[in-house]
Write a protein that binds this DNA or RNA. Structure first.
Lengths: 232, 232
DNA sequence: GGCTTTTTGTAATCTACCTTACAACCTTTT
DNA sequence: AAAAGGTTGTAAGGTAGATTACAAAAAGCC
């Protein structure tokens, strides 16, 4: 599903990677990129595919995951608006290293490897922002690894929910809502746990009034208590 | 311990980040950088310190770790020759996010944040190599996270040893040696396990002839079998 | 060479969490 | 409306691996 090429600039202005560029620069970026939309559930790329393009997420969120040889899925990251997506040769890998699926309807800005590389070569500002974005990702995954090695499943779950609330949540009168239609199964894959354990803990927290959920929509009612539970 | 400033160029030539630069470029890098040595066990920086410099490892290996609030240490990565070290503002963080300790005697090439940023700004080639280096790191930590979420302690230990053999090992007639003076405690912090579990497994593998160790020096005798055990 | 400190080996508990197993429910399809 | 498929709640049983606890061995230090 390819979207009209007009007025991408409007979107691009609020993207991290391109922050602080002049309108002319934005038009140049507009020229060399292409807008692509995906529906919830659609596949963006698969592990092992030739990495021919890099994407910047404009709207929506993308799930990055890998399949173990035994067929278990592990979610490595959720990529939201303003983030980079893809493992292009530029980043040191010929092929994609993860599967990418649209978790919501998604709007992506697509660059060919060559175009992006060229852009970086004569817009050092963009290079710096890419470096910063990668640094942020690295830090986030490291936090996840630390958690996996030292925290209990419940602590990791609380941590994941806090992070979701911060990065994808929206304030309401009753608390922070998360609109990603995450099933307990999905949460389990994010924290590295069995779905049953996640269900048990979620329903306990629901009873304790820390959060609610319905139709795969989570509402965090007491974020501070969740923070405590995450030992953060 | 600061080392003489002469003839750094000789070293710099074999560093990933600066691969493919001209001799003039190397001299420019020589001019804006500073060589620093650390002894085994010395502290390079601590989490929370202002990140004022970035380092490129010339020789030796550095351990990156974090301390949990409860006082447990988690090893996040070993940084070897040619790698980047440090969380400078450029990467999106004002302060260092980890502790860095010299695991062997180490020789580092130190850049001030400003100098490095400037270097990147007018040497896009360097920017590309930095991006590649960060991409590699990211992929490595993701593999670790996947392992933490799906593999058993023994599989993770086997995996860590295979990686050590590949990245820090040297071939001998009897197998691949690892000269990092790693105690079982250190191995445990790398794979997220209790030291006792690591000791038990190591001594089992020693008896089975897969590896030996003595004086904290590990010799992998049957790398292929270790790969099997890692389910790789 | 003796003394202290660190590292290793091993074994007996104990527990968090996975696995297995259903039943109820909800959602989408026919 | 019924059927099929996916999601959730809950509980019993099993196990990997943490914890605790020592003793032996090695390494660094005086």
């Amino acid at each position: 599903m390819t979207v009209s090429n007009k007025s991408k600039v409007w979107y691009l202005e609020r993207v991290n990677i391109f922050a602080g560029l002049t309108p002319q620069d934005m038009q140049e970026i507009d020229r060399i990129s292409q807008m692509i939309g995906y529906r919830r559930g659609e596949l963006i790329f698969l592990r092992g595919e030739l990495a021919r393009a890099i994407y910047v997420v404009k709207e929506g969120t993308v799930k990055l995951s890998v399949m173990t040889p035994e067929g278990r899925e592990v979610t490595l990251a959720l990529i939201g608006a303003g983030d980079l997506l893809g493992d292009l040769p530029l980043f040191g890998s010929e092929t994609e290293e993860c599967d990418a699926v649209a978790l919501t309807d998604v709007l992506l800005c697509k660059f060919s490897a060559a175009a992006f590389e060229l852009l970086i070569s004569y817009k050092p500002q963009v290079a710096l922002m890419v470096i910063r974005a990668l640094g942020d990702k690295l830090r986030e995954v490291r936090t996840g690894l630390e958690a996996a090695h030292t925290k209990s499943v419940n602590e990791r779950l609380a941590l994941a929910l806090v992070k979701l609330a911060e990065q994808h949540g929206f304030r309401t009168r009753l608390g922070v809502g998360i609109n990603l239609r995450l099933t307990h199964e999905e949460l389990a894959k994010m924290v590295g746990a069995a779905r049953e354990t996640v269900s048990a803990t979620m329903s306990k927290w629901k009873q304790e009034g820390i959060l609610t959920y319905d139709h795969h929509r989570i509402l965090i009612k007491e974020l501070p208590r969740l923070r405590e539970l995450a030992k953060l």
